[in-house]
Every structure is written in structure tokens, then in C-alpha cells.
Design a protein around this nucleic acid. Structure first.
Length: 523
DNA sequence: CTGGGGAAGGGGCCC
DNA sequence: AGGGCCCCTTCCCCA
């Protein structure tokens, strides 16, 4: 028995030894594999670094070649491409361009929204010399964008003209002025170095924003962030043509503070009482759109020295090449009778002074309630804005509008969005609501909103059940004359809309269209 | 077909 | 007389 126990213990010890040796063997194998793996990883990382370095070199080479190529084109051209920005700006001011054509972005100073005289809109050339201007690509931004950081500093360049251009994917645009002086990219952004953010396409396409590194006072801003009125005539003004009244009555809604008054679409967003998105703060430039329209459009043409860019409820005046200043215009308390319908509406219908909460302007405000640096013209906001413009403009064109339509002497008042002409400023004001989504007239019973007072009035028949138009033949009643008219057509079997494919007749064009879509859509 | 919204043109009224 | 404003009407479109 004892021998058996001893034998058993010996077997157990042998088993333990074997197990230990096996574990040790396994650990050794794992360690060896791990070492090999680490070695391979290190090697791969080295390879990656080498490839990355090669890629950077290739990028630099490509950029340099592109820069040289562009520079050659630049020199060949009598006018530098950068001047096009100015020209376009002027063109837009004259209505030659419009905001729906893909160039609807203005260079909007984001910080204090002011351009200075020494701050040309475009990367302009001076005295015909080819590349006197310096484009400094902000290194941080460029790094973030993943694009190569390229910079050139020309000798003798006025540092005030330095500017930062974040070119994003289209860095090649600035290539003519590109060097590899990375050290300069970290230069302090003092003085008037500024950034021009190019959102998409070329630099000429969309200069979306510009930030200033200067304080507003030095830039000539007034205490409210606006340039002083004297000597700054025809400063561009963000303008709300609607006479809006702060419905809250406490006067706190539309003032966003001194720090950033310009271009402020930002107001409070009271869900229950959303105020119009374009109310603004300062009264320095109260000149409203109608006034501008009268003073400018009625003259038949724009003074070459004073040009106006009107962006819907926003009026921008550009004095020659002088830098525009972006400001908001307040009409709070404006005693003029513009927008009387709006006020009448308030008095009679006790409705909200609201715009559609889905208005793009509200989108902007929601995104940036303080409306500081970029406001509605930041990159994303611009996209939204553009989308709205496109959709609205398409609608306008469907309605027979569209750019340059009706732009004649009989219709001197032009929509700044689609350039459509109207006979009076009131019409333009109403029309432009389709671009801005401003709907000042809302129903008290269902909270629907309308851009036109008459449409609200018509709508309210839905609630009142008023049907003043009755059919003399069947006593059927209608709320609209047109409905009765169509109904009478049904009585008289008047079918003047005939399908050209099958000969079937319809009383209305829409029926014919539906019929053709259903039955002849393949034709 | 009916109901209803969007948008624009035209005319009248008032200042 | 002219401009601003309001209202009506009309057309287009959609559901």
C-alpha cells in the first residue's frame, strides 16, 4: 500500500515536471513569435515612414509644377485671374451674375465683417506686376486639411497685404504663389493677415469667409461694430426689408452685443414665438431695400463708383473698389410704412411675426446663434443657403421668373437672387420672400404661414367655410372663383386640353399632363 | 374633380 | 403725377 502511494507521488511529480516543461516551451515559442512580430512591425513602420516621405515629396513636386504652370498662364494673361474676383463682384453688383449661378458667395469678413481699403477683395495684382501679393496658407489649417503647406513671401511685399488662404482640396489654385517655406507659415497672424476660406472649387468660385485679426476700432468700426456713418456712404448692409417688430416687446431680442453685431442673423429662438431671422441690431444703416431700390435701380443703371449687391433682404453696397462692410440693418421701430401689410396683419389677425421655422435663415441661426465669425456664410451654412436658393430659384423659374427675365425699364426693381425684374419695390420685397422663406403672415387657427397677406386671407376661408362662389346649375359652392370656373367647365363639357397622342380631351392642363404622364410617359 | 398653397400681375386708394 | 401699399385676381402646381 505504501509502495503504491510512493509510486503515485512519483508519477504526479513527473507529470508536474512535464507540464512545467511544456509551459516553458510554449512561453518560449510565444516570446520568439512576439519578437519576430515586433521586428516585422518595426520594419513595416519604417517602410510606412519612407513611403509617406516619398508621398510628401511627390506632392511637393506636383504642387511646384502646377505652380509653375499656373504662373506661366498667369504671366501670359493680361489680367491676373485674381482680378476676376473683383470683376465678378462688380458683375454681381450689376446683376450680371446672380446668386444661383454657382458664384453666389461673397467674401464676407467673418470677424468684424469689414473690409478695409488696403484689403482688396481679390488677390489683386498691383501695377501689373505678376505676383506681388503674398498668399500665406495657414499652417494649422493646412495641416488639418491634410494638404501640403505651401507659402511664398515675396520680397518687398507689404505685410498688410498678406493673407491666409485656406485652399483645402483646391490648393493648387494658389500655387503660383507657393513656396516651401514652411517656417513662414507659422508667422504670427498679427497686422492684417487674414484668412480667406475657399469652400469649394477655385479661389474665384467661392470665397466664403474672411476673418480679420484686427480689432474693430482699428478697422474703423463704430461702437456697435459698424463703421461710422460719416464718410462711409453706401456701405454694404445686411438688410431686412421686412418691417419687423420685436414681438416680445422687451427689446432684448435682436441685439447680440457689441462684439459681433455685423451680419448678425442671430436672434433668440423662442420656439413659441420665433422671430424673424433677419432682424438686426443697428440703426446706423437703416436705409432699407426699398430705399436702395429707389435710389439705385430707378436710376436705370448703377453708378460705376457705387455699386450695390443686394442679397435678398440684404443689401450690400460696394463703393468702387472700396471694401464692403457687412452689417445688419435694423428696422425695429422704423416708422416708415414699408411692410404695412405686416403690421396690419399683426394688428388685425394677432398672428405671429414669424418666418417659416424651416427657413434657411433659421437653420443658420440654429447653427450659430451668436452669428459671429461666419454667420450664414460659413461653409456649411453656405451650402444650405445655396440649396435653398437653388430650390427656390427653380421654383421661380417654373413660375416664369428666372434671371434677367423682365429686367427692363418697366421693371427696374430687380431681385438680387434671381435678377427678375418687378415694377415696384413692393413686388420685389414680396417676391424675395420666396428666396428667404420669410412668411410674415400666419394663421391664428392652424399656424400656417404665408408670404402674402392675400394668401392668408384666402386660406382663412378654409376655417370659416366661406364659399362665395356658387354654381348656378347645381348650387355647389366654392371658395375660389377659379374653382367655380373649372366646375362650370365640367358642366359645359368644355375640354380644351387635348392629348396629342390619343386625342383625349381634358378640362384642365394638369389633367392632360397627368394623363400623358400615366399613359404616354414613354413617348 | 376638388381643395388648397405659391406666386405674380394689375388696379385702386392714399399720401 | 408718382410712389407706396393693399387687395383682388389669376395662373400654376400639388395632393
Amino acid at each position: 500500500m505504501a509502495n503504491c502511494m510512493v509510486f503515485h507521488n512519483q508519477i504526479a511529480s513527473i507529470m508536474e515536471m512535464l507540464a512545467n516543461s511544456a509551459v516553458a516551451e510554449i512561453c518560449k515559442l510565444v516570446d520568439d513569435d512576439y519578437a519576430v512580430f515586433r521586428l516585422e512591425m518595426t520594419q513595416s513602420q519604417k517602410d510606412n515612414r519612407g513611403l509617406r516621405r516619398k508621398l510628401q515629396l511627390l506632392e511637393l513636386k506636383v504642387a511646384r509644377e502646377r505652380a509653375e504652370r499656373t504662373l506661366r498662364q498667369h504671366v501670359v494673361a493680361s489680367r491676373p485671374s485674381s482680378v476676376k474676383i473683383l470683376d465678378r463682384y462688380r458683375g454681381m453688383a450689376r446683376g450680371e451674375g446672380h446668386l444661383t449661378g454657382g458664384h453666389r458667395s461673397f467674401v464676407k469678413p467673418a470677424g468684424h465683417n469689414v473690409w478695409r481699403d488696403d484689403q482688396p477683395i481679390a488677390i489683386d495684382e498691383e501695377s501689373g506686376t505678376s505676383t506681388q501679393h503674398v498668399i500665406v496658407i495657414e499652417s494649422a489649417n493646412a495641416d488639418a486639411a491634410g494638404s501640403g503647406v505651401k507659402q511664398e513671401r515675396n520680397e518687398g511685399e507689404d505685410p498688410r497685404h498678406n493673407r491666409d488662404i485656406q485652399t483645402g482640396a483646391a490648393a493648387g489654385v494658389a500655387s503660383p504663389l507657393v513656396t516651401e517655406d514652411l517656417a513662414n507659415a507659422a508667422a504670427p497672424q498679427a497686422r492684417t493677415r487674414r484668412s480667406i476660406t475657399e469652400v469649394s472649387g477655385t479661389l474665384n468660385d467661392a470665397l466664403k469667409s474672411e476673418t480679420l485679426g484686427s480689432d474693430p476700432e482699428r478697422l474703423g468700426l463704430g461702437p456697435l461694430g459698424c463703421p461710422p456713418a460719416p464718410g462711409t456712404e453706401y456701405l454694404p448692409v445686411f438688410h431686412q426689408s421686412q418691417r419687423t417688430v420685436n414681438s416680445h416687446g422687451d427689446g432684448d431680442a435682436f441685439y447680440t452685443g457689441i462684439d459681433d453685431l455685423s451680419c448678425s442673423y442671430a436672434t433668440e429662438m423662442d420656439p413659441g414665438h420665433i422671430s424673424l431671422g433677419l432682424e438686426t441690431q443697428t440703426d446706423l444703416f437703416r436705409g432699407d431695400w426699398n430705399r436702395y431700390s429707389s435710389s439705385v435701380y430707378s436710376e436705370g443703371c448703377l453708378d460705376k463708383k457705387r455699386e450695390v449687391i443686394v442679397v435678398d433682404e440684404v443689401t450690400v453696397k460696394v463703393e468702387g473698389d472700396a471694401p464692403p462692410t457687412w452689417n445688419a440693418d435694423s428696422h425695429l421701430g422704423d416708422g416708415q410704412s414699408h411692410g404695412r401689410d405686416f403690421l396690419d396683419y399683426r394688428g388685425s389677425l394677432e398672428t405671429n411675426l414669424n418666418v417659416d421655422t424651416h427657413s434657411p435663415l433659421h437653420v443658420f441661426r440654429d447653427r450659430d446663434p451668436v452669428s459671429t465669425s461666419l454667420g450664414p456664410f460659413d461653409s456649411q451654412g453656405s451650402v444650405l443657403f445655396d440649396q435653398v436658393l437653388n430650390s427656390k430659384d427653380q421654383s421661380a423659374k417654373m413660375q416664369g421668373g428666372g434671371a434677367t427675365s423682365g429686367n427692363n425699364k418697366d421693371k427696374p426693381f430687380l431681385c438680387m437672387f434671381c435678377n427678375k425684374g418687378f415694377s415696384c419695390s413692393q413686388k420685389v420685397e414680396i417676391h424675395q420672400r420666396i428666396h428667404t422663406g420669410v412668411k410674415p403672415f400666419s394663421c391664428t387657427q392652424c399656424h400656417m404661414r404665408f408670404a402674402q397677406a392675400c394668401n392668408l386671407k384666402r386660406h382663412q376661408r378654409v376655417h370659416t367655410g366661406e364659399k362665395p362662389y356658387s354654381c348656378p346649375q347645381c348650387e355647389k359652392r366654392f371658395s375660389r372663383q377659379h374653382q367655380l370656373k373649372m366646375h362650370l367647365k365640367a358642366h359645359t363639357e368644355e375640354r380644351s386640353f387635348t392629348c396629342t397622342h390619343c386625342g383625349k380631351s381634358f378640362s384642365e392642363s394638369c389633367y392632360l399632363r397627368i394623363h400623358q404622364q400615366k399613359n404616354h410617359s414613354t413617348l
